[in-house]
């Protein structure tokens, strides 16, 4: 059970505010897409439009090729995992998970069987008689997932489902989410503001800002070859070096004009784009790497963040000869 989603020049206006500005996006059947962006970027609005909780001001949304205009949430082939889970506190887990089937008139015994199977899928085997308040946050999240998947939707919408979990649990749930998606094959559209979470689970990341899509592509592509400065900055730390007329502050570079963007971990002694000798301003041990601020001798006002291997001896005042292994050039 899976379907493609096609968003065609969708805009959403609330009063004078433009929450979505002419957004178009095609999501393939069975794809795991993550909508990533800061709060207020329009990602949740877009999710609500797909789920049918709001109608777009203009534009069209198709699911499995079918136009969804005027189709109520209950009649759409989508289900949602809500940020607060919205588990029904007065029902057992089995009744929660079986709720959608009950609404579809499935007999009690059948839906109990299906609910138990879904609970097993999310690792809550044999807990069907419990009530939501007896569960931990992570377990509630799983029940919400099981409930949404029990009706075999073509598209599953997840609204920051891991947002309420602590970091360790969140990383663990990411892996499970990904595994479950592989198993059921349903199209997942997942909203988050955590770029690490996005990279961990997405087939494709859609970066949004100010109601527009800034960038989209596989995690590697979006991280290493961002199309905009916003994407570059949102996906991770980046050094931005202004270049004009082939000259950077530390010397000539093989780039005409623009902003030279270099990730901290791309800087090493062997990098091809030479920065020249740099003074270490400060350094801190981060476990898997050493994080340091350095300034090229030729441009003492420029402060660059670098991540160096923990084996490298980095201390304040030391001079290292550094270069960038990869870089991109973007315009302002």
């Amino acid at each position: 059970m899976t379907a493609s989603v096609s968003i065609r020049s969708v805009s959403q206006r609330y009063g004078t505010a433009l929450a979505l500005n002419d957004v178009s996006l095609d999501i393939a059947a069975g794809e795991f897409v993550v909508l990533l962006g800061p709060s207020g970027c329009g990602k949740t609005t877009l999710l609500n439009l797909i789920g049918g909780f709001a109608e777009p001001t203009s534009g069209q949304i198709l699911i499995g090729g079918r136009d969804m205009a005027g189709v109520a949430p209950k009649d759409r082939p989508t289900t949602t995992v809500f940020q607060d889970y919205a588990l029904f506190p007065h029902m057992s887990l089995r009744d929660n998970v079986g709720f959608g089937l009950r609404m579809r008139g499935v007999p009690r015994a059948d839906r109990a069987k299906k609910a138990d199977a879904m609970l097993a899928l999310v690792g809550l085997e044999g807990r069907g008689d419990r009530r939501p308040h007896e569960l931990s946050g992570g377990q509630r999240q799983r029940v919400a997932l099981a409930r949404a998947l029990a009706v075999e939707p073509d598209v599953l919408l997840l609204d920051e489902p891991l947002g309420a979990l602590d970091l360790k649990l969140r990383r663990q749930m990411q892996d499970e989410l990904k595994a479950i998606q592989r198993r059921v094959g349903t199209t997942f559209v997942h909203v988050t503001h955590d770029q690490e979470e996005a990279m961990a689970i997405a087939d494709r990341i859609v970066v949004m800002n100010h109601g527009r899509i800034e960038d989209h592509g596989p995690p590697r592509e979006v991280y290493l070859h961002p199309k905009t400065l916003f994407t570059a900055g949102f996906m991770g730390e980046v050094n931005r070096i202004p270049v004009s007329g082939g000259n950077a502050p530390f010397g000539p570079v093989p780039v005409a004009d623009g902003i030279l963007c270099i990730r901290p971990e791309a800087i090493s002694p062997t990098g091809a784009l030479r920065l020249g000798p740099c003074t270490v301003q400060d350094a801190a041990f981060f476990g898997s790497y050493v994080r340091a601020h350095v300034s090229p001798l030729t441009a003492p006002d420029l402060r660059l963040v670098v991540h160096l291997p923990q084996s490298q001896l980095v201390e304040e005042g030391r001079v290292l000869d550094l270069g960038a292994e990869t870089h991109v050039v973007l315009s302002e």
Binding site: G51, F53, A72, P73, K74, T78, T79, T80, F82, Q83, D84, A86, F88, F99, G100, M103, R104, R147, A148, V151
Partner: peptide
Amino acid sequence: NYARAAQDLGAS
């Protein structure tokens, strides 16, 4: 979200 979840799952 309670009402939305119910309707999302097919409840009138």
